[in-house]
Design a protein around this nucleic acid. Structure first.
Length: 293
DNA sequence: CCGCGGGCCTGAGAGC
DNA sequence: TGCTCTCAGGCCCGCG
């Protein structure tokens, strides 16, 4: 489910109750997530303080006072929900909370900030992992990731360079986390529509001589940044699973121009096209065959 | 190296 | 109502 804007929305929701707070108790209700949680998972967190909560692509990274980093990924259907302990309740509250857990509540963090943070993930494509901070640059999950699309490093020059000589489609290129990290099916489709570029276009055609960016690369890089900034501002897109940490829905699904809008008119000014759905490498692509060339 | 298809899971919605 | 089928914000592996 979640792409960069959704993960960033979750990070911003969690940061106020995690940063500076200590894990008082960690409940693991299921170990068999995408990667199996180790036996000592809870023990490595309990008593440790979160010194910072960051994000890399679609991964959340919690820095711990122990020198470890807790890596969290939401997969397709993962979400975090924050609730607060009743101030009047007894220490037995933990037991009560456990018994009131909903289906697919796999991990619960009881923080010293008084917050309970519950990780729920029906499909279990998400997971968590703890690694020493000193190993982070060698971490296989993060190692091959391309630059952050909202960072200074990413722009038309990088995009064109990375696409130079690539026979693959623009859709596949933008979806490749090694090229640029954080885009998924929705935002690739949306960025390509904004840039007026067909998802079927050869990636190499946005690069000129020596891999220098042409005007298509400029448009595409700008569209990628713009759509992500707007989506973050809207709290991400809620199709079915994504929620903010307070349980509310994101709003960006109302701003989709093409995603999941097959048959509807293309919103580009003056364009009379209709949005079409095709399948590329097994995933749905939505685009306007008229204005996206 | 590269692209593709399949697999991992569960749930929702459509069609019969 | 209930069954069967398809599809879903991701990612990894193995194949050709």
């Amino acid at each position: 489910m979640p792409e960069l804007p959704e993960v960033e929305t979750v990070r911003r929701g969690l940061a106020p109750v995690m940063e500076g707070a200590r894990f008082v108790k960690v409940e693991v209700r299921r170990h068999d997530l995408r990667w199996r949680l180790p036996r000592d998972f809870a023990a490595r967190l309990e008593g440790k303080t979160v010194t910072g909560l960051g994000r890399r692509a679609k991964y959340l990274l919690a820095d711990l006072s122990s020198g470890d980093v807790l890596i969290m990924h939401l997969g397709m259907s993962g979400s975090f929900r924050i609730t607060h302990r009743d101030a009047r309740s007894s220490p037995g509250a933990f037991h009560h909370e456990r018994s009131s857990a909903a289906a697919h509540d796999h991990v619960v963090f009881h923080m010293s900030s008084d917050a309970c943070i519950t990780f729920n993930d029906p499909r279990r494509f998400g997971s968590m992992k703890i690694v020493p901070r000193t190993d982070l640059d060698r971490e296989p999950l993060l190692r091959a990731l391309g630059p952050e699309p909202l960072g200074n490093e990413f722009g038309a020059v990088l995009l064109a360079n990375a696409c130079h000589g690539k026979k693959t489609s623009l859709k596949a290129a933008l979806s490749d986390q090694r090229l640029v990290a954080g885009l998924g099916n929705i935002y690739v489709c949306e960025a390509l529509n904004r840039a007026g570029l067909s998802p079927r276009r050869r990636a190499s055609t946005i690069a000129g001589k020596m891999g220098r960016p042409n005007e298509k690369a400029e448009r595409l890089a700008a569209a990628v940044k713009a759509v992500l900034v707007e989506a973050i501002k809207a709290g991400g897109s809620s199709l079915r699973d994504h929620r903010r940490t307070d349980g509310s829905l994101g709003d960006f699904q109302h701003a989709f121009r093409v995603y999941d809008r097959a048959g509807q008119p293309c919103p580009t000014r003056g364009c009379k096209g209709k949005v079409r759905r095709i399948v590329q490498s097994g995933r749905s692509t939505f685009y306007c065959p008229v204005c996206q060339t």
